[in-house]
Each structure stands twice: as structure tokens, then as C-alpha cells.
Design a binder for these strands. Structure first.
Lengths: 237, 237
DNA sequence: GTATGATTCAAACATCTGTTTGAAACGAGC
DNA sequence: GCTCGTTTCAAACAGATGTTTGAATCATAC
């Protein structure tokens, strides 16, 4: 049961906080119940008592913040569309409604939004089957709405291309939030950029630049037909 | 020992292939020795005999392909710089030397490059401590070289910004390769785009668009200090 | 043939995993 | 005082984990 009705709310919250942090740091499988309960300062059996098991705990960790995040995104989009009154939105605003909201949530270090967004970022590429399906349900409505808005806002970009670029943007944001840990992997200069404003100021132009980039050229050769490989098309040389 | 000298090379290769695949699918912690050895069709003790343990196996899984990948990247950059003869390279070519090489490796489905690139993509955000340090060593030289080339090629973008955008590009590529699995999470329309040429044609423009995007405006207040912003160069509306 | 070293194999190692249990402690209502 | 439902707790559960062991098998050289 999701931390309401009966159940000690303090114990539940402590478990959720500890699990969120440890899942972010070590992943689901590498985080044991004993790590969680000892970090939370509760008895080992508490997780099974309050949540029912490890899988249910994982889902509640996401549920606690993901519903809020996606609702905030939809509300931001609603506000934009209401203000525009039928006219296509500016890509800049759409991107901000989706990614800006997430970045501002990640800015909330004390409230735990920061930890959660990092957890969410790494969960995209580490999809345990039941977690993937769980995430898919929560995201279906949001992605549909934003995809439609982007298609309307970018009539020059084919819809299929927009979906891919959406995907690429998710990747860039995920890395942006995972942030310095992965960056120091890639560079000796440690960039302690945990200022969310600055991060948004870096990421947003990148996302928009990629989203509105001119389309890639089709391969010049291959004139017609389903990829019949002819003798050996001589390239320039 | 890294699959050379003594040791049955067939057994070692089968273990590496199985481990690579299972690590990509389930992650390191969730993949047991018994899964690996049974998938490879070898005895349970074979991993410890040939590699010394699970951690050493993980490192060899990466070593097998990562050194080749990064050397190919450096060679591509070498060729570009030799051809340019001191002149700054075109960003398009630098990006292709780094990400294009990776995408072409990912295109090698039969040779295992595809599985490996997906594994590598998800490993960035799932950094077990010892794996992170291991990756950092392999990447240090490459990133240094490419960062320098990009700084030279993009004099308008501050070096720090370039490093971040490098990071964002890594994220986008990681998601691009993790590809459809995460995308179907985000959309009902299944995009079976496993054609690497098409993927590169989608990703490259996105990366370049992000890399060359105009800088984000500083917060409007904060008048003085470094980076004095002059009036505001008006672009086309 | 035998001898030697590398490789495989089944079995067991201690330790950790998620979960369950039943009794103890708690807190409010009366 | 007592009772009742909720919550905590230490202990144990069966099963899986990575690793080790010592004998069996193999290949090769003599």
C-alpha cells in the first residue's frame, strides 16, 4: 500500500528516501533490503510489512515522484496551449515544459528531487522488465501530448524524426543530470556544476539546437528499388 | 589473463560473448556466473579459471572492444588532422570521427559490436566504482584529443561549454544505441530502426545542431563581471 | 606406451539474498 | 486496570550468490 491509510508514514518515508538514494547509487539489483533498512534505520522486515516486497517498493519509489513530475509537465503544456489559443507553440517553450520542469525538479536537492531525477535517468537504460512497463504506463500520455505539440510546432521535421529527436533529448538530459559523475569519467577537469540554473542554461540550447537541426541528407547513391546492391558503385575518388 | 597466452581461446571467447550479451541485457549484478557459463556452454568454474573472477571478466569484456574502438577514433582524428595540415577541422568531421566510428561499430551485429555498444551505453549511467575508473583510464587520452580538436574548431564556444556538450552528445548517442527498447517505452509506435546508416543519419544532425547551438543567455540580471554581454546581436526574427 | 601440463568437471564452500514467522512493544479507547 | 489493532523486532527460512577444491579428462611430447 502506497504509504497512506494506515502504516507509519515516518517509517515509510524513511524507507523510500533510503531506497531512492541507494537505487540511484548502486542500481536495483545491487541494493539489498539490508542496505535499505539499515540506511533508513528501520527493521529488516519493515519493507515487506509496509510495501509488500522489493518490487513493490521500487514501484512506490517511482510513483511517489513520477506522477507529480508528469502532471507538472502536462500542466505546463496546458498553460502554453491555452495561452497560444490554437496557434503552434514555439519549440523553445515545449522543450522547457518537458525538460525544464524536470531540471527544476532536479534542482530540489533537499526535497530529494535531485536524487530521484538521477535515478530516473539511469533507469531508462537499465530497464528491468517490470520497471520498463511501469514507466511506459506513466509516460504514455505525456509523450503523446508533447509529441503532438512538437509535430505542430515543427512542420518541417517529419514526425518520425521528431520522435527520435525526443529520444535523443532524453538521453542528453539523462547524462546532464547524472552529470559530473559521468563527466569526470570523461575528463580530468572536475566540473562541479550542481547549480541547476547553470545546467539548464547549458542544456536547453543544446536540446533546441539538436531538435531544430536540418535533416540529414539521404545517401546520395541508391537511386531506386529496395537496396539492390549493384556492381560496386564507385564513390568520388 | 586476457584470453591470450595459454587458455583455450574458444572457451574464453564463448564466455566473453555470453557475458557481453547478458551484461547488456541484465546489468552486471543481475547477471550470475551460472547464467554466463550456462549460456556459454562451459563449466561454472571456467570463468574463475580463465579470468580469475567476475570483476576481472567484466574488465576483459570491455577491454576486448574498447581499446579497438578508441584507437579507431584516434586514427580517424589523426587522419583528419593530417589532411587539414594545422587548420581547424570542421565540427562535422570531428563528431563523425568520434560518434560515427562508434555507430559503425554498433552496426556490426554479427561481430558483436552492436551488443557491446549497447552495453557501453548503459554502463555510463550505471557506474560501479571499479568499472568507472576502468573506463576513465581508457577514455582519458581520447577525450583530451577530441576536446582539443573541438575547441579549435569552435572558437565561439567556451571550452567548458564544449566539454558539457560533449557530455550531452554522449548521452544522446547512448540512448540512440540503446535505441528502440527505451523508445518503445516512450511511445506506442514501435520503431524498429536497427539500420545503422539510418540511425547515423538521424543522430548526426542532432549532435551537430546541439554542438553548434548559440549559447544560452545569461540570467538577465547580474550586470557586470566576466563575459560582458553586449547589446544583443539580433538574429533573424 | 608413459609423463606432463593444461583444461574441464561435479561437488562443496561460506556468505548473502528476499521473505516469513511469531512473539514482543506500542498506543489509543474505554 | 484491560483490550485490540498496529507496528517493531530478532530469528530463522529456503534459495542463490561468487569462489574454491580435488579428482577426472584431454592433448601433446617423449
Amino acid at each position: 500500500m502506497s504509504a497512506e491509510a494506515k502504516h507509519n508514514p515516518d517509517t515509510c518515508a524513511r524507507i523510500l528516501d533510503a531506497a531512492e538514494l541507494l537505487f540511484m547509487q548502486h542500481g536495483f539489483e545491487a541494493t539489498s533490503m539490508r542496505m535499505i533498512t539499515s540506511e533508513a534505520g528501520v527493521n529488516l522486515a519493515a519493507v515487506n510489512y509496509h510495501f509488500g516486497g522489493k518490487e513493490a517498493l521500487i514501484q512506490d519509489v517511482f510513483r511517489r515522484r513520477l506522477t507529480w513530475l508528469n502532471q507538472a509537465r502536462l500542466q505546463a503544456l496546458d498553460a502554453l496551449e491555452a495561452q497560444a489559443g490554437g496557434a503552434p507553440l514555439k519549440p523553445h517553450h515545449i522543450v522547457d515544459a518537458f525538460f525544464g520542469v524536470a531540471l527544476r525538479m532536479a534542482a530540489d536537492k533537499l526535497g530529494g528531487g535531485y536524487v530521484f531525477m538521477r535515478l530516473l535517468g539511469r533507469t531508462y537504460t537499465e530497464p528491468t522488465e517490470f520497471v520498463r512497463q511501469f514507466l511506459a504506463e506513466g509516460y504514455a500520455a505525456v509523450v503523446t501530448r508533447f509529441k503532438a505539440a512538437l509535430i505542430k510546432a515543427l512542420p518541417d521535421v517529419p514526425p518520425e524524426e521528431i520522435l527520435w529527436r525526443f529520444h535523443f533529448m532524453l538521453g542528453a538530459m539523462s547524462y546532464a543530470i547524472s552529470g559530473t559523475d559521468a563527466l569526470q569519467l570523461v575528463s580530468d577537469t572536475r566540473l562541479d556544476e550542481h547549480d541547476p540554473e547553470a545546467l539548464a542554461r547549458r542544456l536547453m540550447p543544446f536540446l533546441l539546437g539538436g531538435l531544430r537541426a536540418p535533416l540529414g541528407k539521404l545517401p546520395t547513391e541508391r537511386p531506386a528499388g529496395p537496396a539492390v546492391k549493384r556492381k560496386r558503385a564507385p564513390k568520388r575518388a
